[in-house]
């Protein structure tokens, strides 16, 4: 009974962790999206959807862009478009490019060290999978 009560809490904690992870990555993801040149808000959202598995809440990206601008990491300008209304384009500043490089360096180092740490877990997962397949094979043979 106790285990049944604890299970949803564990799932909830795992989800919260994932949300925090995504949230922490979004700033770098936006800087990376702008690395190739200027984009407007919806283009950034579409870029993130196409190139990553980040589930981005639209109402979060615009305030974050506003914050990156306040930090001097991006700059913006309104540009007339063929759609009949101007669009607000964002592009990286020199500080923004440097910040993106610094964050990428930290990210790469961090993920490499985490991968090393997680290797045994990955091995265990593969062994379990192997055992499961082997057992399945034996069962099929006995049939």
């Amino acid at each position: 009974m106790k285990e049944k009560e604890e299970a949803p809490i564990a799932i909830d904690a795992a989800e919260k962790w994932e949300v925090q992870l995504r949230k922490g990555s979004l700033e770098l993801a936006i800087l990376a999206a702008l690395w190739g040149g200027r984009l407007y808000g919806l283009e950034i959202l579409r870029h993130l959807e196409t190139h990553s598995e980040l589930i981005v809440v639209e109402g979060t990206v615009y305030p974050l862009l506003n914050r990156l601008k306040a930090l001097g990491l991006v700059e913006s300008e309104w540009v007339e478009s063929g759609s009949g209304h101007p669009r607000k384009y964002y592009q990286l500043t020199a500080n923004g490019r440097q910040r993106a490089l610094d964050m990428t360096r930290v990210w790469t180092k961090f993920s490499a060290s985490m991968n090393g740490l997680l290797e045994p877990l990955d091995g265990t997962k593969k062994e379990k999978e192997k055992d499961r397949r082997k057992k399945k094979g034996e069962d099929d043979d006995s049939d």
């Binding site: 919806l42 759609s83 209304h85 101007p86």
Partner: peptide, 16 residues
């Protein structure tokens, strides 16, 4: 006002 304009543009583009 700039924020409101940007959100207006987003809505128009998204529903275009």
């Amino acid at each position: 006002e700039e924020i409101v304009e940007e959100i207006r543009t987003h809505i128009f583009d998204k529903t275009s």
